[in-house]
Computed example of a mutant assay.
Amino acid sequence: MVVLAICSGLIGALAGMRFRVFILFPIIFVGSVALATLTASWSETTLAIVVFASSLQLGYVCTLLLRPTLVSLGGGVRLPFLGSPTLR
C-alpha cells in the first residue's frame, strides 16, 4: 500500500506540472479499473482505489502549491515542463 501511495503521489505531481485539473478524472478512472483487475479481494480493491485516488489528488495539489516557487527559481527562464500542452 505504501508503494501504491508513493507512486500515485508522483503520478499526481507529474500530472500537476503538465495538465489542468480535468486530467484527474480520467487518471483516477483508468487507475481504478487497473487496480480492480489486479487486486485479489474486494476489501483490498476498495482500499487500494481510495489510497490511489487520495494520493493522486494530494500530489496534484502539492504541485499546484509549489508551482510559483518553481517558476521563481527559474530566474526568468521559461521551464518547458511547467507549461500546458497545446493542440496543433
Rank of each mutant, 00 (worst) to 15 (best):
L35Y: 01
L65Y: 08
F81Q: 01
V30I: 15
A5Y: 02
R67C: 04
A36H: 02
Y60L: 07
L58P: 00
I11T: 15
A13G: 13
V33H: 03
P85H: 01
R67W: 07
G31W: 00
G75K: 13
L38A: 11
A34Y: 07
E44F: 04
I28K: 01
I27D: 01
V77A: 14
Q57E: 07
F29L: 14
G59I: 09
G12S: 03
G74K: 06
A13S: 13
P85R: 03
P85S: 03
M17Q: 12
A36Y: 01
V21M: 14
S8A: 14
A15V: 08
A53H: 04
I6T: 11
V30A: 15
L70N: 04
L24I: 14
L64N: 13
S55Q: 04
P80G: 03
I28M: 10
A36F: 00
I6A: 13
T86C: 02
C7A: 15
F81Y: 12
I23W: 09
R78C: 08
L70I: 13
L14H: 02
A34S: 13
R78G: 10
V21F: 11
S43W: 09
G74E: 08
A34D: 00
V51K: 03
V30W: 04
V3I: 09
A40F: 06
R78V: 14
V30N: 02
P85Y: 06
L56Y: 06
I27W: 00
T37I: 10
I28V: 10
L87K: 07
R67Y: 06
E44K: 05
L58F: 13
V71F: 08
A48G: 15
M1C: 05
L79G: 04
V61L: 15
L87W: 10
R88Q: 09
R18S: 06
T45I: 07
C62Y: 08
G59A: 10
I6D: 00
R78L: 12
G9F: 08
V61R: 11
I11W: 08
S54E: 07
S72A: 15
S72G: 02
R67N: 07
L10G: 15
F19N: 15
L10I: 13
L4T: 08
S41H: 08
A36G: 01
G75A: 11
M17H: 01
R20L: 12
L79N: 10
A5W: 01
